[in-house]
Computed example of a mutant assay.
Amino acid sequence: MKLIEHKIYIVPLQFDSSKLITRATGLKYASDMTWDCDTIDHLDRHTDKLNIIDCRITEAECEFLENYISQHKTTPFMLTIADPYESKCKDHWYYKMLFRVKNMPNVTFLTKYLPAEIVKTLQDSIPEDKMVFIPYPFVDSYSSSSNFKHRRKKVIFSGSIGSIYPYRCRFRRRVKLNPLLWSKVTFLEHPGYADIGENLKHQVIGEAYIDLLSNYRFMFVSPSRCGLEFMKYRECAYARCVPIGKAPDSFSEAMSSAFLHLDFDRIYQSLQKCFSIPVDELEARSKSYYEAFAAERNPEILNKKLDAFLESRGFIE
């Protein structure tokens, strides 16, 4: 394997990243990670680089990539992985390709979440030095005010509802059943995913979403059943809200320390306790949460972790 000096993020040829409601993939993700970007039809331009593959490539592009990898054994490839859910992913063309190429010597994997379900199965089937966990980067371009005295003493709740989100479902159900909490929580419907052809239900996305969050003292955030560190944890920090709910499995002690963990069997009592915290302490928690995120999830730190992984593989020195 040749030594590499540069990384290139490879995206699908015709995918419209502008339709994404977050910066979790595509051109925006590459930009946040400070990586150069190109489309999959230009692989021949980057045989001397680490080719980091976007997980949104099409079925035809997967077939092309698999053949290309096998024919270019001295070019290193890193395939990114997001969702780990077995029921959703096991029959998807991209995940099927991951298992077919997993033993090729020029293939490694970057998972954006701690391995779980199908990703854990993949991890368990390969050597330890073939997969690295690199969470989403923290890049604040919003500059939200942290002045809590002018914010609503309420919780803002948003996100999809379903079986893979047990904590969201329990919180939402308990609030809906308790009239004493109706004025304490604002629910924002999930906008939908325009990138997969859904019609957006509202335009409170991107900067408008962060602006909305920044009107509230508290934001409810929780992982899926797999304990995943969703983009919402960053968005909570961008908006300088105090996070309440449940921290993901990947948080360090510093990132968890500012978190207000709810007792999901006693939601009313937990929220009353949160609402009784003095505003100065809330502002300090918000600041601590923001600073921990900025310190541990900034692109420079994440790229250093990636470089250390690549060095251990002998790809760089």
Rank of each mutant, 00 (worst) to 15 (best):
I4P: 03
P12I: 06
Q14C: 13
F15T: 04
S31W: 09
W35G: 10
D38C: 13
D41N: 15
D48S: 12
L50R: 07
L50Q: 09
C55T: 15
R56C: 10
E59F: 10
E63H: 14
E66D: 12
N67T: 15
I69H: 11
Q71E: 12
T74K: 09
L79D: 00
T80S: 01
D83L: 05
P84G: 06
K96A: 04
F99E: 00
R100Y: 11
T111N: 01
I118D: 03
Q123W: 03
M131N: 00
F133D: 00
P135A: 00
Y136H: 03
S141C: 07
S143A: 14
S143V: 06
S146H: 08
P166I: 02
Y167M: 06
Y167S: 09
R173W: 12
R174K: 15
R174Y: 10
L177K: 15
F187I: 09
A194E: 10
G197R: 10
N199H: 14
K201M: 08
G206C: 08
Y216C: 00
Y216D: 00
F220E: 01
F230R: 13
C241F: 07
P243V: 00
S250I: 02
S250T: 07
E253C: 02
M255R: 05
H261W: 12
F264V: 05
L271I: 10
F275L: 10
P278E: 04
E281D: 14
S286I: 09
Y290R: 04
N298V: 04
N303E: 13
D307I: 03
L310M: 08
L310P: 08
E311L: 15
